[in-house]
């Protein structure tokens, strides 16, 4: 087990290095740079652009340095916890992102719980009643969530929530509570706003969850131990929950890897439409305006989370499943 862990851990380092290269490529590849997009933004408004000011900024932001130097400074900075500087905010990246992490995690966690609550019973029912109208109907509803483009659904729900319930549009709380200390009223206001993003983001995840649970359950249900258990007269529900379900949800553990970055980035597009104070819109805006260190460090952060997440789930699986532990490394 220890050998497996050590090996697994050392594989992570070249992976992270490769990721940092790709991230840097991503933020360097698009033509132009932040200042170009800054200039055209000023122009669109009619502001006159003093070329000298732009040149000054170019120097200030270090655009005059060669690419490799910038890469090196960025990577070595990250190792010591310095994630660079956001041009748009004119603040260190950690200040910009850190501020929004809490609400992002809140939204994502609630969404995941919501997804599980919906997906579990439906998946179980569909698996035990394969090809019944109930199976079809429930899968259909699940898929409907997947099929509707999220950003459109968000806008429509937002509008009607405003017209019908008078919920203020966008954001996660009434504007008056922003930057205020937490209180009962603030928490209630958050709850009032939270359901729209949760439902919109949740619906798209539910279908996948239902489908995987159903497929895994179907596999398990055909195994002989199920027949044995049935033959021995175990009550159906108890039998279901105690044996096949336990085996079927292994994939949830395998999912942790991909879950972590999703929790942090949130559903970017929905968050943009709903003006959520989460990290997603920051990332999108940073990519659009080529605020490269903000975008780059954030991407790097997300990717590292996945790598760590995969490591965690591999370790968990190895710990749970001796076959993997002994075979040494063919995980997931």
């Amino acid at each position: 087990m220890l050998g497996y862990l050590v090996r697994r851990f050392f594989i992570m380092i070249p992976t992270l290095l490769a990721i940092s290269l790709i991230v840097f490529l991503i933020i360097e590849l698009p033509p132009g740079d932040y200042l170009e997009s800054y200039v055209s933004e000023l122009q669109a408004q009619g502001e006159t652009v003093d070329q000298k000011h732009i040149e000054f900024l170019r120097e200030q932001y270090g655009f005059d340095k060669p690419v490799l130097t910038r890469y090196w400074e960025w990577v070595t900075g990250m190792v010591v916890g310095d994630f660079g500087f956001s041009f748009e905010y004119r603040l260190p990246v950690s200040d910009v992102v850190g501020d929004r992490l809490f609400l992002t995690i809140l939204v994502s966690t609630v969404t995941i719980i919501f997804t599980w609550i919906i997906a579990f019973p439906i998946g179980l029912y569909s698996a035990t009643h394969q090809y019944s109208w109930g199976d079809y109907g429930l899968t259909f509803i699940g898929l409907l969530g997947l099929a509707t483009p999220n950003f459109l659904l968000a806008l429509i729900m937002l509008y009607f929530a405003n017209v019908i319930f008078g919920t203020s549009i966008g954001g996660l709380m009434d504007p008056d509570y922003i930057d205020q200390p937490w209180s009962w009223d603030k928490a209630m206001s958050v709850l009032e706003h939270l359901w729209i993003p949760v439902v919109v983001i949740g619906t798209s995840g539910t279908a996948g969850m239902i489908r995987r649970l159903r497929a895994n359950m179907l596999d398990e249900l055909q195994k002989q131990y199920v027949t044995t258990a049935r033959a021995k007269g175990l009550p159906p529900l108890r039998m279901l929950l105690k044996y096949p379900l336990r085996n079927a949800i292994n994939f949830f553990i395998a999912d942790i890897g991909s879950l972590l970055p999703n929790i942090i980035s949130g559903a970017e597009l929905v968050a943009v439409v709903l003006s959520l104070p989460t990290t997603g819109p920051v990332l999108i805006a940073a990519l659009q305006s080529q605020d490269m260190y903000l975008a780059g460090s954030f991407l790097m952060f997300l990717a590292s989370l996945t790598v760590v997440g995969v490591l965690l789930s591999d370790i968990l699986l190895a710990w749970l499943d001796p076959r993997i532990r002994l075979a040494g490394g063919v995980a997931k």
């Binding site: 806008l155 509008y159 203020s168 549009i169 966008g170 504007p175 943009v272 439409v273 709903l274 003006s275």
Partner: peptide, 18 residues
């Protein structure tokens, strides 16, 4: 008071009296 948010939602928010 300046309330920041996605620019494409400004019309909707304005329309709801914000």
């Amino acid at each position: 008071v300046l309330n920041h948010g996605a620019t494409n939602m400004v019309p909707a928010r304005t329309g709801s009296g914000e």
